[in-house]
Design a binder for these strands. Structure first.
Lengths: 328, 328
DNA sequence: TTGAAAGCGCTAACAG
DNA sequence: CTGTTAGCGCTTTCAA
């Protein structure tokens, strides 16, 4: 593998000149630039990022910590993050934590010296620990608000509220909520929001689960929900929803005739057959991009600068999967 | 961030001793070891992998190139690869290529200097290109046999053959195959196998698709399959299968009474409600581990050594989702 | 606009 | 078993 020196020799200039030609072309005379580039091309030269990292202290890597990769929501975030990072010549190292605080902490400390910043999807570490890391490397939180850190969350509660309003309007009085994993910060928030609404409208919310957000779990809970007397069901995510719908189909439970259905995100639902399902669309990809863009800003910008976090709005698609309750 | 020198000073030894204490403890006297470790601990020292990489030429990274992360099959491979790599203190950098030859080539060349080896999931580059890279860094192919490279594939055709035999035995004569993406090497092989069987048993195989391996695509094709007169259907993967089953449920098509069903891998099917589906289980995680283990072997072992690739066996689970054809 | 020189943090002979 | 001495490949003052 050709090194800077090789190129320098080939082009008849010094290594520093080659270095400048590669990273700050404007500092080099046009004619030399051409010569250097030709030489580099000839030798198939590519800068060695590890060596560069050693001098600059920047590796060109961001780390993205995700609970797991099977969840399409996280997969989407990761993909979007990679894409955006790629635009500024950076890479995203994905570390799977299993939602385990220990593994998350380990990944943070192990990667600290190798990356320029962290994006932590649904972090489970304590705010203090995250802030501690942040003192040395930029940390951005996704899907959970962490004091002192730039955080990007999704206004799912707001979106669900819209759905809820609609349900009330249609005359529903007893609604099921199929809850996601208890470790999920989002889920806790969603539940809080639901309870609040319930109080306001004097509705009853029955919580099912919590369950792992998996197809099979949704299917397994579907009958229970159908038999519960609830006239509508809100589902934590669309993986679960798929499972629920699957089982409803098998059981002959009809949507929305027998029960109204809505989901909290609509990944993979885009072109489901049959009537579209009311969904609160979570911008998973935007979360990934927002995080990377904030990290980029911190790394490239003023030392102390901390970009503002945001709560990304959801898009609510109200469809005919919501109808008046059967007995209403 | 404390460096080797800092620790050396703190412990009253030379930097080399600290270096040895960290990477080859057996070369250091017990008493010094203790002292060095204490010093390191006190200073919160962690070796800087970039610096180490610069001297050793090893980054401790493997790259895993995957077509996409939404596909649970790839996600499973990636997760398993990460886990195994972690056991030897390495990390796996996941690069999403979108199944695009250009992006795959770019990832290969861009990462070449940053990783110790590549595992390429379902590579789309030419064998020549892959071999070219392999001359400089170990490359392992997953899910496609590439001459000159250690390759790990899955004996899905064999597994499907078993299913096929059973279908024949049950009296089926007309079988549908819902095909995966045409770019898939595996899919082409599976199809070849099916055709071969068909010839042997004088059966008819109707190919539906090819389609993207997504839930919605499966659902969208289900009716067509149900109406086709085929008495059994083999599905390219379980994501598609889920979609097919979903739609069958909605259409009132019963399995196996109306149609027999089998799938080519059973990710996410583990605890589906209802009768279990006949499936050819693809050991996605084993593929990831095999690849990493081969890479590890190449990196740690003799320079020229190339581990043998394998065709991993599938596990076929024959269930009651297969029954005699309706009209038989 | 360019070159010389120093050094980032670590490892690897080579002596001792 | 431990210290000394060179770099690994790059960037970055500082001078020219």
């Amino acid at each position: 593998m050709a090194s800077l020196d090789d190129v320098a020799r080939e082009a008849g200039v010094s290594a520093s000149t080659v270095s400048r030609a590669m990273s700050r072309p404007s500092m080099v005379a046009e004619s030399t630039l051409v010569r250097v580039r030709a030489a580099a091309e000839r030798l198939g030269f590519r800068v060695n990022p590890a060596a560069r990292a050693l001098t600059t202290g920047r590796s060109g890597f961001f780390a993205l910590l995700v609970p797991d990769l099977d969840n399409p929501f996280y997969a989407a975030t990761a993909t979007a993050a990679q894409d955006l990072a790629g635009e500024s010549g950076r890479r995203v190292i994905i570390a799977v934590t299993g939602g385990d605080p220990d593994r998350e902490a380990e990944a943070l400390s192990e990667l600290e010296s190798q990356v320029d910043g962290f994006a932590v999807q649904s972090p489970v570490s304590s705010a203090a620990d995250l802030q501690e890391v942040h003192r040395r490397k930029p940390v951005v939180a996704i899907n959970r608000r962490v004091p002192g850190l730039t955080s990007f969350t999704v206004d799912t509660p707001g979106g669900l509220g819209t759905v809820y309003d609609r349900l009330v309007e249609l005359g529903h009085r007893e609604v099921a909520y199929l809850a996601g994993p208890p470790s999920s910060w989002m889920d806790r928030h969603r539940r809080a929001e639901l309870v609040e609404h319930a109080a306001r409208y004097q509705l009853r919310v029955r919580v099912f689960g919590p369950v792992r957000p998996a197809f099979a779990e949704g299917a397994a809970t579907a009958r229970e929900i159908a038999d519960s007397g609830c006239t509508a069901v809100l589902v934590y995510n669309s993986l679960l929803l798929l499972g629920v719908m699957f089982e409803f189909g098998r059981l002959g439970v009809r949507v929305p005739a027998d029960i109204s259905v809505a989901a909290a995100d609509d990944i993979a639902l885009a072109d489901l057959p049959g009537p579209p399902i009311t969904a609160v669309r979570t911008p998973a990809d935007e979360l990934g991009r927002a995080a990377v863009s904030a990290l980029t800003e911190m790394v490239d910008g003023e030392p102390g600068h901390r970009p503002r976090g945001r709560r990304l709005p959801t898009t609510v698609r109200i469809t005919d999967s919501l109808a008046p309750p059967r007995t209403a």
